[in-house]
């Protein structure tokens, strides 16, 4: 049994700075995503689950359609397991409606001119992301109790909240602490993995061009995101 805690936009330097010991586990470092033209969420997770660079294919769909990507189960390494549980992963089974709503509010925020209304949009945006995070957390902990041979939980809160609030360090720290707690409650072999990190643009957050990984079983050096298929299968199934 192995558990993957997939955290969107978990930033290496912040994990270091806040000294989040559970997120760091025993071995941790940055992933190499330099093969991709931009650190795009959908591209990175699709490449992760298939073990191959899927950038060209995802980009060909265009900015709108890209978000609706659903990679068939048999093309992912999840299909190597008898009874896997994958929670809310982009490109596989994430909640399209939830993520569409997030992007919509994000757009609304940037297009709004009035400062008062802008604040209101930000509040709605944050509330929406937090509510989703609470639901995902709940389902994730339920899954850990279940009879699965592989569990992957995907947490978007650091990315979603980060885009509008990355400059608010105390808010980010509280989120990182929460994620740190989540990891601490997972038993057995585990991998923490992010697609990319985040860097501040004033109050906002932009993607940084490396990801984060950590394990409690071995040092992975500087892996590419497509290496995780092999790593997970090797550790879990000895393949």
């Amino acid at each position: 049994m192995i558990t993957v805690i997939a955290i969107d936009a978990l930033e290496y330097t912040l994990v270091e700075e806040f000294n989040m010991r559970n997120l760091k586990q025993d071995y941790y470092g940055r992933t190499d995503i330099s093969e991709f033209s931009e650190p795009r969420t959908m591209v990175l997770w699709s490449s992760f689950m298939t073990g191959e660079n899927r950038e060209a294919e995802i980009l060909a769909k265009g900015d709108k359609e890209m978000w609706n990507t659903r990679i068939p189960h048999e093309e992912t390494f999840f299909s190597h397991f008898k009874n896997p549980f994958v929670l809310d992963l982009p490109g596989y089974n994430y909640d399209l409606e939830q993520h569409r709503r997030e992007r919509e509010l994000l757009k609304e925020f940037f297009e709004e001119k009035d400062e008062e209304r802008k604040r209101e949009v930000r509040r709605k945006y944050n509330e929406n992301a937090f509510a989703h995070h609470r639901r995902v957390k709940e389902r994730f902990f339920e899954a850990l109790e279940g009879d699965y041979d592989f569990v992957l939980g995907y947490f978007s809160v650091a990315d979603v909240i980060g885009h509008l609030n990355f400059g608010n360090r105390s808010l980010m720290k509280m989120i990182y602490r929460d994620l740190d707690d989540i990891v601490s409650r997972v038993e057995g072999k585990k991998i923490v993995l992010s697609d990319h990190g985040m860097k501040a643009v004033g109050a906002f957050g932009d993607h940084s061009d490396y990801g984060f990984w950590s394990t409690n079983f071995r040092d992975l050096g500087r892996p590419r995101i497509t290496d995780f298929k092999r790593i997970v299968l090797q550790e879990a199934l000895g393949e």
């Binding site: 931009e38 650190p39 795009r40 969420t41 959908m42 900015d63 890209m66 978000w67 992007r103 994000l106 757009k107 940037f110 885009h163 643009v201 004033g202 109050a203 906002f204 932009d206 993607h207």
Partner: peptide
């Protein structure tokens, strides 16, 4: 004023496919 940062961020979010 955060106008510059906002403009830059919009452009980046577009590039990443968010908007």
């Amino acid at each position: 004023a955060q106008d510059k940062e906002r403009a830059y961020m919009m452009q980046k979010l577009r590039a990443l496919g968010y908007m």
